[in-house]
Simulated scan of single mutants.
Amino acid sequence: MESINIPQQTTQEIAGLVREQLVEMLEGGFAPNVILLREFDFKKAGIILDGLHFSAWILLGHIRARQQTLLQFMKHPEQDIDVWPDAHWPENHQPASEQEWNEAIDAYAQELEEVIVLVKAPATDLFKVQPNGKTRSWAAITILHHTGYHIGQLKTIGRQLGVW
């Protein structure tokens, strides 16, 4: 059997590639979350469908709460931050106004941009294991996973409500 010669990449090259791929996915890849949220009709954001315990507004609040926790960890990883505290589910199921809905989306987008800036920064050590046993790359991947899960729910709610 013939051997395959695979060029060795440096750790720095691999880290750069991971950084680029994380940024691409955080920015939304083929389906940016911010666009989906802005398309969602705020008048339907407070509707809780039969069998569910959340509305689009509750989901947005839950997504933001988890993202904020993980962002704080990424900013201050040396602190022993509980990166997976009990889930925050807002009690109010609907935004008070279209302005409140839009402000929440704006805040989500701004917080996400902070995450992206940290991931892009060469000075950010994405792989150093912190005192809580986690890494910044773990936090970025967790934001992607958690948000993606709930955005899928939001998209399903929107389809059921005729948003799309």
Rank of each mutant, 00 (worst) to 15 (best):
K75D: 01
A87W: 07
H93V: 12
P85K: 07
K75R: 13
E114Q: 15
E114K: 12
W84S: 13
K120P: 04
D80L: 10
P77H: 03
A107I: 07
V83Q: 01
A107W: 00
I116G: 07
Q94T: 13
L118Y: 07
H76V: 11
T124H: 05
A104S: 13
I81P: 04
V83P: 00
W84T: 12
P90D: 04
N102P: 02
Q79P: 06
P95I: 05
W84P: 03
A96E: 12
E78W: 06
H93N: 14
A96I: 10
E100C: 06
E100S: 03
A107Y: 04
H88G: 04
S97T: 13
A104F: 05
W101F: 05
A109P: 00
N92W: 07
N102A: 08
I105N: 03
A107S: 11
E91Y: 00
V83F: 08
H93S: 14
K75L: 15
I105E: 00
S97Y: 04
L126A: 10
Q110K: 15
E78F: 05
E113N: 13
S97G: 08
P122D: 10
H76R: 11
E103F: 05
L112C: 02
P85S: 02
K120R: 15
A109L: 03
V115R: 06
W101Q: 06
